[in-house]
Simulated assay, not measured.
Amino acid sequence: MAKDIRVLIVDDSAFMRKLISDFLNEHPNINVIGTARNGKEAILKIKEMQPDVVTLDVEMPEMNGLEALQVIMKEIPTRVVMLSSTTQEGAENTFLAISYGAVDFIAKPSGPLSLDLDKVKDEIIQKVLMASKANMKGLLNKTNQDSSLLPKKDFPKFNRTTANIHQNKLICIGTSTGGPRALQQVLTNFPKTVNAPILIVQHMPAGFTKSLANRLDSLCHIHVKEAENGEIVQNGTAYIAPGGYHMKVRKGGNHFYIYLDQTEPIGGHRPSVDLMFLSVSELKNVLKIAVLMTGMGSDGTKGLKALKSSGSTIAIAESEESSVVFGMPKSAIATNLVDEIVHLEKIAPTIMKYMDV
């Protein structure tokens, strides 16, 4: 079998370069064609070697991964997978990298020099394979705001004390690879008075979803937060399922409550879009708007079938053109249950037209 995916490894640690190279070279389809010690060297080697995928460390001397990534995406657009630490600063840098155009990221298990990197060996291989298929047009699609230049918003939050407690609409969004940038595009286009709660499952490890929520909250008119067990959902608020937890919604009296648990992963995912959709499908007298965006695999398709069977569900899928990875939307579309297939920038307006239904 031909080793057709050509990879460049960029890390300032010789140990890490060797370890990642050995992992990837074990796969029959992957060929590590070179390594680089810092961002400057990486840019030169990308121009010379034209790899299909680059794994890029964040913390490096001379030119770090974030600086290099901005140059790479401007001068020689290439599919990049970031390696980052699980610290708060590492998480914030990860979302900057994704906003600059990285396909995805891998969290190092134990800091910059992770001697136990073998714990994420399979993840490294799978994410490089996935990145090789990523849609460059989707990656280069600019979000509607350059978040690196935005000041923290100074406008007031939606007044949750006046929210309609008896909810009659619910927006549910599922996404994976390419999701953080896609969520930024969608959520920043919601007005602060959106008359529904927004439930979000983004495939992401524990430790990153809170930083994602805080980042999006600083950019959006609506309130964005990491979901908490037992809280009442409110209009004008988006709830992101915490990494490592499934998120469900149940009704109690006139309220809808969020329930989090750590039951077994579904299809390898926790949180699972399917499980969130399945729980929402059990709610009565609610218009459900289900959205599936960029991501690998088929998570959400089974749940979408349950939602449609329950009635009162509008299904929206992101188009192939704008998806970084057209897996989850494609699987949903194949069911013939999707009502609207739209480009990423049209998803928020499409949702909003159903708010007056």
Score class of each variant (00 low, 15 high):
residue 12 D to W: 13
residue 19 L to M: 13
residue 24 L to T: 05
residue 28 P to H: 10
residue 36 A to H: 07
residue 41 E to T: 03
residue 43 I to Y: 04
residue 50 Q to G: 01
residue 52 D to T: 07
residue 52 D to H: 14
residue 59 E to S: 09
residue 68 A to Q: 14
residue 73 M to H: 13
residue 74 K to M: 12
residue 77 P to N: 07
residue 80 V to H: 03
residue 91 A to Y: 06
residue 92 E to S: 06
residue 95 F to C: 03
residue 121 K to S: 12
residue 136 M to A: 10
residue 137 K to D: 15
residue 139 L to P: 12
residue 150 L to C: 05
residue 150 L to N: 01
residue 158 F to E: 00
residue 158 F to I: 00
residue 159 N to I: 00
residue 168 N to E: 09
residue 172 C to L: 12
residue 173 I to D: 04
residue 173 I to H: 03
residue 185 Q to Y: 02
residue 190 F to P: 00
residue 195 N to P: 01
residue 197 P to R: 04
residue 201 V to Y: 06
residue 204 M to W: 11
residue 207 G to A: 11
residue 211 S to W: 06
residue 215 R to E: 14
residue 227 A to D: 05
residue 229 N to H: 14
residue 235 N to Q: 10
residue 241 A to N: 06
residue 243 G to I: 10
residue 246 H to T: 11
residue 249 V to Q: 04
residue 249 V to M: 08
residue 253 G to C: 10
residue 253 G to I: 09
residue 253 G to W: 14
residue 258 I to N: 04
residue 261 D to E: 06
residue 264 E to W: 00
residue 265 P to V: 00
residue 278 L to K: 09
residue 282 E to S: 13
residue 283 L to E: 14
residue 292 L to M: 10
residue 296 M to C: 02
residue 297 G to F: 03
residue 298 S to V: 02
residue 300 G to Q: 01
residue 316 I to Y: 12
residue 323 S to Q: 12
residue 325 V to Y: 10
residue 328 M to Q: 09
residue 337 L to A: 03
residue 337 L to V: 03
residue 344 L to I: 06
residue 345 E to A: 02
residue 353 K to V: 05
residue 356 D to N: 08
residue 357 V to W: 07
